[in-house]
Each structure stands twice: as C-alpha cells, then as structure tokens.
Design a protein around this nucleic acid. Structure first.
Lengths: 217, 217
DNA sequence: GCTGACAGTTAGAGGCTATCACGAACGTAT
DNA sequence: ATACGTTCGTGATAGCCTCTAACTGTCAGC
C-alpha cells in the first residue's frame, strides 16, 4: 500500500479515477442495492458524461465483478489479520459479523442472491478458498470428536475443496457448519427479517457461536 | 378454489390476464432473477404493448410485491399441509427444502437480498408469522431442556413475535435456530456457493436437521 | 515542437418504467 | 336493438438506463 507512484502520471490518474468510481459505486450500493447501480449516475456525480466511464470499465457488469472481487479480498484480509493476531473460531466469528455490519450490502453482494447466469471469474474463487483456508485452520485448533457421522464419511470422499488441508473430515464438517450457521443468522439479520421481533440479533449470533464451540456428539 | 366464476365476465377476464402476467413473471424470475423482470417483455410475450399492463398492476414494484405475497402464501400452505399431515420438525425441514428447490428464485425472492428501502405490506408480515406459528407448533412437540441459557432468558423478555404461543423461551430459541440454520444451508446451496465443492448439499442439510433434533445442552 | 495515445464529448440505437390522451370494444340498461 | 358508460389497448411522449461510434481536444514522450 506504499507504491502508489510507481507508474506514469497517466496511469496514476487512471487509477485514481477508477478508485473514485468504485467509491461512488459502493455508496450507491450501500443506499440502493447493487441492482440500482448506475454508471450514468456515477459519471454525473463526478462531473462527466456517461460514456466517459467506459474508458475505465468495460461494462456495468465488469464494475460489479470488480467490486465483488474487492469485497472478497476485504473479507479475506479481515480473516487473515484476525487469525494472525491469534483469533480462535469465536474471534473469527466476531470479525465476520463486524465486517458484515460495517457494510451490509457488501456482505450481500458476496453471499446474497446471485443473478442466475453469473459465474465468478477464476481468481475470485481463489480468494474464496483462501477464506475457507483460514477458517479450516481455526477449526483444526479445536478438538473435534465426531465419530464417523454419516455426513463426515461422505465428506471424506469429497474434500478436494479443502485444498492442502489435512484436517479430518469431522473438521471439514465443522468448518461448513461454521459457515452455514453464521451465514444463516447474519443474512437474515442483514436482510431485516428480525426487525420487529424485538430480540437482539447480536445475542442470537453469540448463542450460535457458543453452540458451535461446544463439543457436539 | 372452486368459485372462479362468481363475478362479471369482465372481472373474470381481468383475473385471467393478471394470472397470466404473474405466470410469465415467474418464468422470467426463474431464468434471470427478479431484478431482470420486465413488464415490457411480459407484455410483448402476451402480444400486447407495454402500457397495457398498467391497467392490471400499478407498477413493476407492485407486481413484485404481489409475487412476494404469493410466494409467502405458497410456503405457508406447504408448511400448513405438511404439519396437518403429522409432519414433525424433520418433516417440516424436508418440506422447506423441497419447496425451495422447486423454484430457487422464489425462495430467494423472500429470503434473499432485499432492496434497502423496501418494506413489506402488513398482510405479508402476517403470513410470515403464520409460518413462524406452525414452526413453533412443531417445536413444542419436542422435549427441549435448555436450562436458562443466556439467549433464552433474553428471549423471555422479547417474545411478542410469538403471538399467542405459550411455548417456553427455549422453544422459541429452537424455532429461531431451525430457521437460521436451515436458511444458512439452503441459501448458500441455492446461491451456488457449494457448486464445485463436490459434496452433496442434501446430506449437509440432513446432517443439520439431525443436529437440530438432537437434544442440545 | 511534433506526434500519437488517451480523455472526454456529442449523437444515437435500443431497452426500460411510467403517464397521458385517444379510439375501440364490450356489457348492460333501456 | 340501440344507446351509454366503463374498461381495454394503443400510440406518443418524457425520462432514465447501457453501450457504441465518431469526433475533438490535451498531454506525455520523443
């Protein structure tokens, strides 16, 4: 994050414009959702006409894809630094919730409703598996005695997504549980399905984390 | 569902056109997602011009809202009939997954990414709480000995969403867990986040249901 | 200082939502 | 059977969007 001046002035300007476009795009997404993102509106805010932005992004979808990539990268970094500073599973869970609440639409851009045809580029799935990697790392740190549960034995035959990790299948299962359960609470909270029910979503989340940490038969 | 002919011929025609519009709308949503729904395209498919449809639906958002209502009603009915035919929690879970896989975008229309400003009409939240009602009913049928867990005590003070139900707070917590955990697995599966990982989502779902049914401390 | 690459403009095609005024069709009531 | 009022569908129009193409400045590097 130090070498912002390594290239020609034109390229620096270009990078700056691209950054500002993304910034405004995030603002728009935060207030009106990704489907309402308008290149035209962004250009207007920046004092230019619409077509000018096509010098910087090939298309609207291209911009969105880049935002998705940035979001993944931001989450991966959050996980990485949390894990580097000795966070356990609970710490990771806390980091995840903090990251999600920081910008709900950013979370939903990754884990929310996808457009049916869309396929993420290769490098994005790479980042996603790095996230899974640190999650698996935190799971192996926990004792986990799940003796031949049916799904764990199934996982033993389908563990190629766990890349290098040599964790037992029960641990893979726990990582998946961590993912799906926290996503379940978080996504419903972010989507506003708990509003009006009165209880504190943070406590429900915490209870779920506790349950996740308790040794399960 | 028998009295389709109770009104004037004009009203029958009107109802039929509205039904056909909705049908095409569901097709469009299933193939391209809700954000791609186009009144114009529907009108073209039906051999009319765009503005004609505004006689039947006040706006695009109005149509979508009605689709959301229908989706909720369909899910509520699925739950109702499942519960009426003696389904327990596992049966309800199975019914939920079946309903979701039947039309993934319909599930995501309800539980997926919302547009930030949107607020569902009153009657829709009513249907939602009916769904919660049958879920609570199935939960009370299960022994549930959660001795004063922190979140359960919190729920005891915030249980107005459980309307008439007199279930103990631990049961409310279990119903919430049922909701969030199954949604977690289902939504990630429907959004395609498991594709390429190789394992069978149905088994992960089943494992989650099993864990939900096992008495938890 | 010249030149070529690049920025940004206008114009335009084609899509969308949504409103309006108009004519045509239809059921009903006389 | 005819006349009437309601309702349906159309074309025109405004305003928004994405995205392409051609044209014009402007800046960096030789």
């Amino acid at each position: 994050m130090a070498k912002t001046d390594t290239k020609t002035p034109r390229e620096r300007y270009r990078a700056q414009v691209r950054a500002e476009v993304k910034e405004r795009a995030w603002e728009q997404i935060a207030t009106a959702g990704a489907s309402a993102l308008s290149l035209n509106a962004i250009a207007r805010q920046m004092g230019m006409t619409g077509p000018a932005l096509y010098r910087y992004f090939a298309s609207r979808d291209d911009l969105i894809t880049e935002l998705i990539r940035d979001a993944y990268q931001s989450l991966a970094e959050t996980f990485r630094t949390a894990s580097a500073s000795g966070a356990d599973l609970a710490g990771l869970a806390h980091a995840l919730r903090g990251w999600a609440l920081e910008d709900p639409q950013r979370y939903l851009l990754i884990y929310g409703t996808p457009v049916p045809g869309y396929h993420a580029p290769e490098d994005i799935t790479g980042i996603a598996s790095e996230i899974m990697g640190t999650l698996l790392g935190a799971c192996t740190a926990l004792a986990c005695d799940d003796p031949a549960a049916p799904f764990a034995t199934h996982l033993a035959d389908h563990r190629h997504w766990a890349a290098g990790h040599s964790a037992p299948a029960a641990t893979l299962h726990q990582a998946l549980n961590f993912w799906t359960r926290l996503h379940g609470v978080l996504s419903l909270e972010l989507a506003g399905h708990f509003t009006g029910m009165g209880f504190d979503p943070a406590l429900l989340f915490a209870a779920e984390v506790n349950d996740l940490l308790a040794d399960r038969a």
